[in-house]
Nucleic acid binder design. Structure first.
Lengths: 209, 209
DNA sequence: TAAAAACTTGACCGAAAAGTCAGCTTTTAG
DNA sequence: CTAAAAGCTGACTTTTCGGTCAAGTTTTTA
């Protein structure tokens, strides 16, 4: 018989929980449903996770790492075209690769982040400060138009995350059951085109992700 | 004693419900909490609304009208600059004026629109078709760059709604308790600037809302 | 191979919350 | 003025669901 490792099994439960939390929210999700979706008795879930809250927090936690990675282009490049191009690509990749976790996180923010640990909030705040500082620097050096950096970021977050968060709506209008590879490419290209030109960024030399 | 009008009282309950649903989601909201927030006994809520589901549906319903109004600029103008300028202004106004209902609606979409009536979905689909057709027309007439109209709309929706939906996050980074009038102005101006220039739209003659 | 450790689960418990209702008060109609 | 209609609510019922546990089985260890 396949020797199931404890961490592997926790990961299986975590994945199932992630999808359920994404589809139904925290309060709308029953532990029994998570269990049933992977053919486990409810009590078995409790052998691996202390409580519903712990399980939910673990799901949130699993998304923090990818989330924090995305700002890398702002550190890596000293050119707004390169940085924004890669940033948009990365953020849309996250929507594509973590559709459920993205929605759990979105749901969390939507409701005022009641379960988001303070240290994570601090890290996100710090990152945003760094990114806006970098943008302001580029503006000051005449490398891009005088665009409010924070509101630019808000737009980028919203426009990229929307492909995960409001997946239902996207699929409705794209008349498809799931967003295709091509659609993600279209989304990325369109956004990059609008944002670079819209910010008056000319030469770009992105490395491409 | 003040003669309580039935519709007025229903509206009061609806407002209270809207805020609670926005903050806690459908499953996370207790009828007793809605009642307590306006100092009514729970049973009184049930005198005006058959069930929690009915009340929730009514909240959703109340947001459909403002939502459908927003596309007016696409019918009213035959110039992408004018239309997009007013559209962005209108959409951000909605985030400002209906912060709770916006979030209830966002939550509904986030979870795959389980309670959205089919006829509303059809209306939204139809509107989107009209808007993208208009955009395509402007592109064909050389009035703007060849931008994928649907993805442009997705970005506009996301970027404008984010001020209501992810209000917590916006306030966190703006370091404020509530988004100020000036912040909304900044948001609007920034978005309009990026989008018009980003779409290669030159002359604009918006009426301003 | 035996004892300990790890894992599994059906049955149960208690709290929470949706929804009901009988009986009350207030308002309205004639 | 009175009877009916409308409005109100405390107390109750019912169901659902998070969480527990005792009694197992399987795996590991020595």
């Amino acid at each position: 018989m396949a020797p199931i490792n404890r961490d592997q099994k926790k990961a299986i439960i975590l994945n199932a929980a992630c999808e359920k939390f994404a589809n139904n929210g925290y309060a709308g999700t029953k532990i029994a449903d998570i269990a049933k979706s992977i053919n486990l008795p409810k009590a078995n879930i409790y052998y691996y996770f202390d409580s519903k809250e712990t399980l939910y927090r673990s799901v949130l936690d699993s998304f923090i790492q990818p989330l924090l990675m995305a700002t890398q282009p702002f550190d890596e490049y000293d050119h707004p075209g390169a940085a924004l191009t890669d940033y948009i690509k990365l953020k849309i990749q996250i929507s594509k690769n973590h559709p459920f976790a993205s929605r759990v996180f979105a749901n969390e923010i939507l409701h005022g982040a009641p379960s988001l640990p303070k240290d994570i909030i601090d890290q996100l705040t710090q990152q945003t400060s760094n990114s806006t500082a970098k943008l302001q620097q580029w503006i000051d050096r005449g490398m891009m138009d005088n665009i409010n950096p924070l509101h630019l970021l808000f737009s980028l977050w919203a426009s990229t995350q929307t492909y995960a968060d409001f997946n239902w709506q996207i699929c409705l209008h794209l008349k498809t059951a799931t967003i295709s590879e091509d659609d993600f490419t279209d989304a990325t290209d369109t956004l990059i085109k609008i944002v670079l030109k819209g910010c008056g960024i000319t030469a770009q030399e992105a490395k491409c992700v």
